[in-house]
Write a protein that binds this DNA or RNA. Structure first.
Lengths: 211, 211
DNA sequence: ACAATATCGATACTGGAATATCGATATTCC
DNA sequence: GGAATATCGATATTCCAGTATCGATATTGT
């Protein structure tokens, strides 16, 4: 168990977690080897072992890691037992998809509500979650100490929404608008530009010689 | 202008492109330095220079790169003048958002249609784009030589849809279902797990030291 | 009990990407 | 025109993730 971890390792942990919980109950009761996990996921066994070393108390030679304990360790490490509240601003299709996304719960997040400035939407519910007016965002987040926000508004409104969020004490912002947001220090932004992602994926092999 | 390019460089090019086109018109008419770009995007200036060297004819010392030319070069290189057809399978909110996303066009993509297996949706139009039955996917894609597909179906159906896509000759898959897809060689998959992204964003500081 | 085997963990190696350094060149200012 | 400065491009260096190797250890089978 070594708390020094790279983001690459961090990004593979959910993969292991996913794989382990998908195992039939019979296999969960025993042990599992890094070799077996690597095989199943098409990875290198040493890599898996190194990754696991950073979250677990170690496995035993010839036996492997106790499966249930390992699941617990990874889950705990990733904070999947948390219940962090998340708000979503912009109730277009994207925003609605966020409110309906069930997989957040698996990772310890709970979307507690949506915000929009369209009066026709304010007051409605989506997937049982209320839609509030953006003007209430500040008080809502401060009251509940919400620290995570998702921006799914059109490009033009993104920076304004971002400012409102940071003003409300939001510390982590996931931004789906295709613009670069500027934020005060201490606020982490992740820009998720779908078109960009697609471009990176689909253009890789097109062009000349790529390593 | 050197056509040997790494995928890392390639993945940064759209970033530069994005930044450059977002500049006010006044600054676009002049020149821009690698240093300035690096500063704005939080990257190393040498890295930016090296990246740009692979697509542009070079800048001038003390002056930088002619901005408009650079935009053109990157855009041309990335194929943003293309019109690559894209299909979307799964007409939930997510899928609908994809059909309505205007920013694809900026990057040379055109969503040509959606697919679903819900008969209530098949035959309708979303944002002027027809929704077809998944059973027609194969013939549709082969006829039009579609190579790019986006998966926005629930977890359980993702692998099946993936198989149908690869069977239809799709070469690039953007997958929003939170599962690892297995594909034949020659098919590129990008898994976009929103929950995971959020976890990495919001948990980074929680957990010990992350590099 | 002892040999064979599977697996672990630590260390060493490798290759590629990021970064630092440096000389060359264009521009600006005096 | 010449000094100062910003920037480029090339080369050298550093760093890091991934992989291979190897000794140690636990289990199994004879």
């Amino acid at each position: 168990m070594n708390k020094n971890i790279t983001s690459q390792t961090l990004s593979r942990l959910p993969l292991y977690f996913n794989y382990l919980i998908s195992l039939p109950e019979s296999r969960k009761s025993g042990h599992i080897s890094a070799t077996a996990i690597a095989e199943a996921l098409g990875l290198n066994d040493v890599q898996v072992r190194k990754d696991l070393a950073s979250v677990s108390n170690g496995g035993r030679p010839k036996v492997g890691y106790p499966t249930k304990e390992l699941i617990g360790d990874i889950g705990k490490f990733l904070g999947f037992a948390n219940h962090d509240g998340v708000i979503v601003v912009g109730m277009g299709n994207f925003g609605r998809a966020m409110l309906e996304n069930r997989s957040f719960a698996d990772y310890g997040f709970e979307v507690v509500g949506g915000f929009d400035c369209d009066e026709k939407l304010v007051g409605t519910e989506i997937n049982g979650k209320p839609v509030r007016n953006v003007s209430e965002l500040g008080s809502f987040c401060r009251e509940r100490n919400i620290q995570i926000g998702i921006i799914t508004v059109p490009e033009a409104a993104a920076q304004e929404v971002c400012d409102i969020m940071t003003g409300a004490g939001i510390k982590y912002i996931l931004n789906f608008a295709p613009v670069h947001l500027s934020t005060p220090a201490g606020v982490a932004v992740h820009n998720e530009n779908i078109s960009l992602t697609l471009a990176m994926l689909a253009r890789k092999n097109d062009i000349g010689d790529i390593k």
